[in-house]
């Protein structure tokens, strides 16, 4: 199995204790990339992603006294982000001047893929695969896409996804397997 390293800059944040919510600047520093990334890949709009990330941390800061640590801080923040992304996507559908949605910068992704060890053919193949997953993800219904992105981009487990989306664990599983099946079909996969 080929190994694809995760960039050092996107290493998973260390979970902060609840009392560390008082040092909110640290919370923002630690979790901003995750919230922004989820918003970006969901909305495909840099400005909207930045706006959602700002709103997410603003809401978290305003209601930080209500956070009792029942779930992980990351899960709590992702729950706020999921709701904001959903609201933003819903509002955007109503806007007749909605801007064109950006595609993932595959040229940039290609630079990351060219790790020096892979051949040009291998890079092209990887690019095709990424494109196929990207297109399949965009075609998914909103809930399936959210679950899919939380699982495979943010690497959250099923319980965390259930907590972040407010769905039952069984429902999360169903959405996830359906989303995966769609992606697999896009690949022309056969059982």
């Amino acid at each position: 199995m080929e190994q694809v390293s995760t960039p050092a800059s996107v290493a998973e944040p260390v979970e902060l204790p609840v009392r560390e919510l008082d040092d909110f600047d640290s919370v923002v520093r630690q979790y901003w990339p995750r919230v922004f990334r989820f918003a970006l890949v969901s909305l495909r709009d840099r400005d909207a992603a930045q706006s959602v990330a700002q709103d997410c941390f603003l809401r978290a800061w305003r209601s930080r006294q209500l956070f009792r640590g029942d779930s992980a801080l990351a899960t709590w923040l992702m729950r706020i982000a999921v709701n904001l992304v959903r609201d933003h996507a819903r509002n955007r559908r109503l806007r007749f001047w909605s801007r064109a949605q950006a595609s993932m910068d595959l040229a940039a992704a290609s630079r990351w893929l060219s790790d020096g060890r892979a051949s040009a053919e291998e890079c092209a193949l990887r690019r095709e695969r990424i494109q196929a997953v990207w297109e399949a993800a965009q075609a998914l219904p909103q809930r399936q896409r959210t679950v899919f992105l939380l699982r495979f981009v943010e690497e959250m487990d099923l319980l965390e996804i259930a907590a972040a989306t407010g769905l039952a664990e069984g429902t999360v599983k169903t959405h996830l397997f359906r989303a995966l099946e769609t992606v697999r079909q896009r690949f022309g996969g056969t059982p």
């Binding site: 995760t6 960039p7 990339p33 910068d105 940039a108 630079r111 893929l113 993800a137 495979f152 981009v153």
Partner: peptide
């Protein structure tokens, strides 16, 4: 690979 590309895209 998709995850890695999304992380890189977000960073950029």
């Amino acid at each position: 690979q998709f995850r890695g590309a999304v992380h890189e895209w977000s960073r950029l």
